[in-house]
């Protein structure tokens, strides 16, 4: 009898530590943040002393010129970065999807940029963009061109940040789409080749459509991560010059630590969370729908046999 009790309790005992930690250190803080976004709160106060101001933080933010600016910088940054990375990553995957020796060594080298700390990535790009000792300006100078103000001019700084991010994350897309390519059904490719399809036709009409589910998920994942970028930009430009590279997560952390407006930072976090939540749900439901569709197709195919 006692044994049966132990058995019934086991799953809860296995699950308990994880639940406790997640509740204390993840769910509680998030709930706390939602509450804090309705407060006028600075870091020296306890939360109980902060004044309740309702939706004021949210409304203030909507009217705040620099918040709108950094929101648009974030959207532009995420959009451009993901577009470029998808283009280059998928393109490279299509090009390199061949049976060559050393492919796994190549993949190992390609994932290096993703594994090292974003702080370090920022550091080495800041060095390379350095106006006098950086490799880019040195090369330009030795070729007889004018040096470029990589980080000190607004639009150049934005471009520089994008280049660094593309360098770091294109391999992610490349590796995922390569995996997708290599799991395509060989029979479809074989059939098209027999029908006389050229390489381009194969890519357009067979490979890309078949890869589409993975590509969409990859794109959404990358988009979510692009909204979370912070450290690279922090090290490279710290949001400047002006507000030209001040992405939202950087602004949140500055609002909290420099301007000491915790309530406003929380409200900003909530705006960011809403955007991300929409993206995440889109991805989840896309997955569900495509799973159901494949199941239906498979059922139909089996019915035909």
């Amino acid at each position: 009898m006692q044994m049966a009790n132990v058995n019934r309790l086991t799953p809860y005992m296995f699950l308990a530590p994880a639940v406790v930690i997640l509740v204390i250190a993840l769910l509680y803080p998030i709930g706390y943040m939602i509450y804090a976004s309705f407060l006028d709160w600075n870091p020296s106060q306890r939360i109980g002393e902060a004044e309740f101001v309702g939706l004021r933080n949210y409304i203030n933010l909507l009217g705040d010129e620099s918040f709108r600016e950094s929101l648009s910088v974030t959207l532009k940054f995420a959009g451009i970065v993901v577009f470029l990375e998808m283009l280059v990553g998928v393109g490279l995957a299509l090009l390199l999807d061949r049976n060559i020796r050393g492919m796994s060594a190549l993949r190992t080298l390609f994932i290096l940029p993703m594994m090292i700390a974003p702080i370090v990535v920022g550091l080495m790009w800041r060095y390379m963009y350095h106006p006098t000792v950086g490799i880019f300006n040195r090369t330009l100078k030795s070729l007889g061109f004018e040096p470029v103000p990589w980080l000190s001019d607004g639009s150049w700084a934005f471009t520089s940040v994008i280049i660094a991010d593309v360098w770091q994350w294109t391999p992610f897309i490349f590796i995922l789409s390569l995996a997708a390519l290599q799991s395509l059904p060989q029979s479809a490719l074989e059939a098209s080749r027999i029908d006389g399809a050229t390489g381009w036709q194969q890519i357009w009409h067979i490979k890309l459509p078949l890869m589409m589910p993975v590509l969409i998920v990859t794109c959404l994942l990358r988009l979510i991560d692009a909204f979370k970028v912070l450290e690279v930009v922090l090290v490279l430009t710290n949001g400047g010059p002006g507000l030209s590279t001040e992405i939202l997560s950087l602004r949140i952390s500055r609002t909290a630590s420099e301007f000491r407006e915790l309530g406003e930072a929380a409200a900003m976090s909530n705006y960011l969370l809403i955007v991300l939540l929409l993206l995440t749900l889109a991805m989840f439901f896309y997955n569900k729908v495509s799973e159901m569709r494949t199941a239906r197709l498979r059922a139909a195919a089996e019915g035909d046999d």
Binding site: I30, K228, S249, S253, S269, L272
Partner: peptide, 16 residues
């Protein structure tokens, strides 16, 4: 959970 950026946890975690 993967979607939650560390920047979002910053304020509440610091406070708590």
């Amino acid at each position: 959970m993967r979607m939650v950026p560390p920047a979002v946890l910053l304020v509440p975690v610091f406070g708590i």
